[in-house]
Each structure stands twice: as C-alpha cells, then as structure tokens.
Amino acid sequence: MWFTTGGRRTQSALYRVRWAGKPDENADFAEKAGASVADGGFVRKSDSKWEIKIDPVEVYLPNLENEDRDVRFRMRLGLENSPPDQWRDAALKSQNPWALMALARVGEESDRGPILKILAETIEQGSFAEQPKPNRQSRLDELDGAQRSQTLLTRLRAIQLACIRLGEPTDAEKKMLREALEPLFPHDLQDVNHELCEILVYLRSDKVLGTTLDLLDASDDSRDWSHYLMFLRYLEDDFWTTDDRHRYLEGLKKFDSFAGGRWWIRAGESLRKEFVARLSEEEKSKFAELIPPQQPKPDTPPAAPPTEIVKAWTMEDFANLDVSGRDLKRGEAAYVKGQCAVCHKKAGNGASARAFLGPDLTSIANRFGPSDILESILHPSRVIA
C-alpha cells in the first residue's frame, strides 16, 4: 500500500507499507502451482504468465476453501483463466460459491440455469435466516477468513454476477430465486439486506417495497437511506400504492435531514425530482406539502458577520506563532463568528453541519501546521489547489 501526506506546498512524504513476515511453509498449494507466494503470486512463473500446466480441478478448486482471503481470490482468478470446459462440471458439483462466481464470470449463457439452481437450493437449505445478530466489534473477525466465503453474501454476489454476465434469467428462474430469497428479507445483517433489496428489486418481488420501507422506518443509518431510496426507484408504477408513495416522500424528507456533503444534497434533489415526475396530478396535490425540498437547518444558527474591523491582520502580526494551550471553546466560537462554519464543515461543530461549499476542515491539523493554516486564511489564493 502506498500513501502520501502533506501537499499544497507543505512538507510532503510518500510512504510504502509492506508485509515483512515470512510465507507460510505449509502452503503447499503455491508449490504445486510452481511459484511462491513471496514473489507476488502463484500465477506468475518465469515468462509465461498464465500458461502453466496446472490442473484447475486439482489445484484451484480445493483451495477456494483456503482460510486466506487473498489465496481464495487468486484461486478464483486461476480458475477464470483456465478453460471453463476443464472445470465447469467440478465447479458445479462442488457447489462452492466462489467457484460458481468464477463460472458466472467466464461461463456461457447455458451455465446460468445450473448456477442459479444450485445457489437457490443451497440458500434454501442453509440456515442463513437464523444467523445470530452479530456484535459489531466481532463482526469482521466473524466474517473474515474462510467463513466469509461461505456466507450468504458470496452467494448473493454470485447470483448477481450470473444475472449480469450470463443474460437475464427466465421467468421460471426468477420465480425460483424469489422463493429462495424472499423468506430471508429482512435479515439481521445490514449488508445482506442491502444486497437482498437490490436483487429482489431486480426480480420484481412483490414483497420488496413494503419490507424495505419498513426497514427504513426503523433505521437512522444514512447508509440505509442512500441505498434503499436509490434502488426502490427501479420499481415500476404498478408496484406502488398511494400509501407507499407517501412513505417514500416522508423518507426523502428524512434523507434531507442527514448532515451530508454536496453529493448527498444533490442525490436528494435528483431522487426527489425523479420521484415527483412520476406522481399523478391527483397525487401531486395530495402530497403538496411533502414535495418541496426541506430546508436544511443548522444545529446552531449562523452568527452575524462581524461589522467592526479590528485590524487588517498580516502574517507579520503573528510572527513566532505559538498556539499551544489556546482556548479551544473560544476558538470554536471564533470559527462561527468569522463565518468559517458557513462554508467549511468541521466534525463536532454543530454550526457547520450543513456547510459543504468549501473543503472539510475536520482533519486539517494532520496536514497543516498553525502558520500554514493562518497563511491560507490571510492569503487564500496564494496556493491554488
């Protein structure tokens, strides 16, 4: 991983972070493939990148169960770069969701039916609906590693890929998928719900609209709001009752109330414009109050700008600038009084909650020292981004 710090004429640095450990000696899959993990990947060997004589069924397929996510990923790429005829049958027989995902990516239209059938059946037979509610902190541990490959999310992604890459499912296939997925929705896990909503909208499930609106009612998480309001748009008019439309418009009102950046606000405007355009004249007058965008209200009203000039400050007035031990409460008040909060968001400053015109200053201290900050205020155009 590479990253930079600094910028805009302040001191800059470029860092590289790399793993300094030793490769696992037991990882014989790499040896079988004729390369080592340490040289950056089993798939590369001397001058022939993909043309290694490897039996995909013997090497790649079993290692899709490997506990290392990175290895699983490489194994899937290995499968995808082998002729599908060599491993198609074994992949279907294995029912491994990563293998099915690989087949969905490189297979043919005739593979779609078998892939979707296996996924629907394994989802129906699995105990995915009964997953315990995970505790947030342990969730990554719980889902990472080998377990994650077996989770519902991988299967849902494989379904999506099969539909995207191998052509639109037949009506019978759609019905089969709806029957497998509808009982799981709503789920305990948020990201599973997001994927289920997407797929069920695609499958035009009768259940998806009401359930999603219920999920929204119970959620204060902006990730839910941006996701669900976006995907429900794809449902045609005959899926919506007047009550549903009312709930969606109420939802847009709540969407507007989240403190977000400029793209959040623009997304809200676009969703609203598109939704209102689909309303009948009768509904437009019925919902007249909900249709205009809600005016954002900052937590604390913006202060009036100072009218008296104290001094036209220059850099020289603040030579040897030392701001250690300054009063942060008064600094926050000055941030509001000096009108900074009107355009620049700073986390924790309520008056700046709706500011999105200028750059976010929340973590400015990580990149700029006190003199740089003062110079940028006094000479805003000296360095142009």
């Binding site: 100072p306 104290v310 008064r330 600094g331 200028g358 006190p370 205020i377």
Partner: peptide
C-alpha cells in the same frame, strides 16, 4: 482561485485569531 474572503478574519480580536488557529490546529 479561492473564493474565501480573508477580510472576515479582520473582524476578530488578536486573541480570537490565535484561538481560532489553535482550534483548527488541535
């Protein structure tokens, strides 16, 4: 070119400017 009006800071007392920079640099 920045649209920020530097003049707004002219309405702040010296101490307030220092507190503001201290707040931003914290």
């Amino acid at each position: 070119i920045s649209t920020m009006p530097p003049g707004l800071i002219y309405g702040l007392e010296r101490d307030e400017v220092l507190d503001l920079i201290g707040y931003l640099a914290a």
